[in-house]
C-alpha cells in the first residue's frame, strides 16, 4: 500500500493534513511545481499557461514565475506544440504539453499517432520520447459540443501511445513521474469537473486501496470498497473522471437497494492494466459517447480472461451516441449521470 502512504505524504506536503484534502486542480498544480523543480530538463508548453493567467483551468498557475522559459505560452497551434514537445524529448529534454480543451487534441492527432508514438519504435530500436500531453476533458459544464468531449477512445490502440486519466486517488506527482520515466508519449485526460473535487476522498462508507502492482509508478488500480463488506454484488470499473458518479451510484445502491459495489479506478486506460474484479457482475461506465469505447476494450479483455467466473457479460454504460448540447437540461440527457450507472448495476445484478 505504498501509494496510500505516498498520497498521505503528498497531502502532508501540501499542508492539508489538518484541514480538507487539496482539490484535484491544486494537487495537479503542486505536482507540476514538484516535477519542474526536480528536473531541470523538463519543459511545460501550452496555450495561455503562463502567469498571471496560469492556464484556462489554472493548472499551471505559478509555474512560469518560478521556472521562467521552461514554461512557455504558445500560439494556438495544438499540432505544432505537440510536435515541439516531441522535438524537445528527442533531443534529450522532457516535455509536458497542455491542450486547453481535450476536444482540440484532434488537431494533434498526426503528431501523436504518426510521429511521437511511432518514433519510439519505427527506427528499429527503442527511442525514448518522454512526452505527456495533458487534456482537460469531459462535460457537465455547459460548454457545448466542441468543448465538452471525452475523446479517450480515439487514442486507444495506437502502438507506442499510452493513455491515462487523472483520478482522485492516484498521487499526481508519482503518476506523472512514472509517465515520463517510461520514455513513451502519454496522453493524460483530466476531467474538468474532477478538478473541483478533493483528492483521496471516497466518502464515509468506502475505503480506498490499491490492487496489483503497476509496471510504473502510478499504474496501480485504485480499489474503492465498502468498509467491512464481503464479496461485493457488483464491480464498477470507471476512469478517474467518473469516480464520483460511480461513488454516488454505489452509495445509493447500498442505501436504497442493499446492493454492494466495489469500484475499480485505473489511472492507465491503455494498454489496460490487470483488472481484478472481486465480484461476478461487472459494469464499465465512462463518459465517452457510445460506440467504439474504452469499455468495449475492457469487456473484451475480461470476457476472454474470466468468462466462466462471470454471471453475465460485462455491461457497458456511456454517454449517448449524440453531440453534446450546451443547455444544462439537454446536456444532462446526453452525458453519463449517476442514475445511468445505478440503473445499469440494478439491471445487471437482478
Amino acid at each position: 500500500m505504498t501509494d496510500v502512504a505516498d498520497a498521505r505524504q503528498s497531502a502532508a506536503r501540501e499542508g492539508a493534513v489538518q484541514g480538507p484534502a487539496p482539490r484535484v486542480a491544486e494537487h495537479l498544480n503542486r505536482a507540476l511545481h514538484d516535477l519542474l523543480e526536480a528536473d531541470p530538463d523538463l519543459h511545460v508548453l501550452g496555450e495561455d499557461i503562463t502567469d498571471p493567467y496560469g492556464g484556462a483551468f489554472k493548472i499551471t498557475k505559478g509555474l512560469s514565475t518560478r521556472f521562467g522559459d521552461r514554461v512557455r505560452s504558445t500560439p494556438i497551434s495544438e499540432g505544432a506544440i505537440t510536435g515541439v514537445g516531441a522535438g524537445l524529448a528527442l533531443a534529450g529534454a522532457k516535455a509536458i504539453v497542455e491542450i486547453m480543451f481535450a476536444d482540440f487534441v484532434t488537431l494533434a492527432f498526426d503528431q501523436l499517432a504518426n510521429f511521437a508514438a511511432k518514433s519510439t519504435a519505427m527506427y528499429g530500436r527503442p527511442v525514448p520520447v518522454p512526452l505527456i500531453v495533458r487534456c482537460p476533458s469531459g462535460g457537465n459544464r455547459g460548454y457545448g459540443a466542441t468543448h465538452s468531449q471525452s475523446p479517450q477512445k480515439h487514442f486507444i490502440g495506437i502502438p507506442g501511445l499510452r493513455v491515462y486519466e487523472l483520478t482522485p486517488f492516484h498521487d499526481a506527482t508519482r503518476l506523472l513521474a512514472g509517465m515520463l520515466e517510461q520514455g513513451l508519449p502519454c496522453l493524460l485526460f483530466e476531467d474538468k469537473v474532477l478538478y473541483t473535487r478533493r483528492m483521496f476522498e471516497a466518502g464515509p462508507l468506502f475505503r480506498v486501496g490499491f490492487a496489483g502492482r503497476g509496471a510504473y509508478p502510478g499504474d496501480e488500480v485504485a480499489r474503492v470498497s465498502l468498509d467491512g463488506g464481503g464479496e461485493p454484488d457488483c464491480t464498477l470499473i470507471v476512469p478517474g473522471g467518473v469516480a464520483h458518479r460511480a461513488l454516488a451510484a454505489a452509495e445509493d445502491l447500498l442505501m436504497e437497494h442493499e446492493v454492494v459495489c466495489e469500484i475499480l479506478v485505473p489511472s492507465r486506460l491503455h494498454p489496460l492494466p490487470e483488472l481484478l474484479p472481486a465480484s461476478r457482475h461487472v459494469v464499465v461506465a465512462e463518459e465517452s459517447t457510445a460506440g467504439g469505447t474504452w469499455g468495449a476494450d475492457v469487456a473484451a479483455a475480461l470476457h476472454s480472461r474470466m468468462w466462466p467466473a462471470l454471471r453475465k457479460p460485462v455491461t457497458l454504460v456511456s454517454s449517448a451516441d449524440s453531440v453534446i448540447p450546451a443547455a444544462a437540461h439537454l446536456e444532462r440527457e446526453v452525458l453519463l449521470q449517476p442514475g445511468d450507472i445505478r440503473r445499469a448495476v440494478l439491471e445487471t445484478v437482478t
Binding site: 497551434s77 499540432g79 505544432a80 506544440i81 505537440t82 510536435g83 515541439v84 514537445g85 516531441a86 522535438g87 524537445l88 524529448a89 528527442l90 533531443a91 534529450g92 529534454a93 516535455a95 498526426d110 503528431q111 504518426n114 510521429f115
Partner: peptide, 17 residues
C-alpha cells in the same frame, strides 16, 4: 519521416533545446 510537414514542429522543438 514520411508525412509532409510533420517534422517542422519537431525540428522547432529540437532547435529550442
Amino acid at each position: 519521416t514520411g508525412v509532409q510537414g510533420e517534422s517542422l514542429p519537431v525540428a522547432v522543438g529540437t532547435a529550442l533545446r
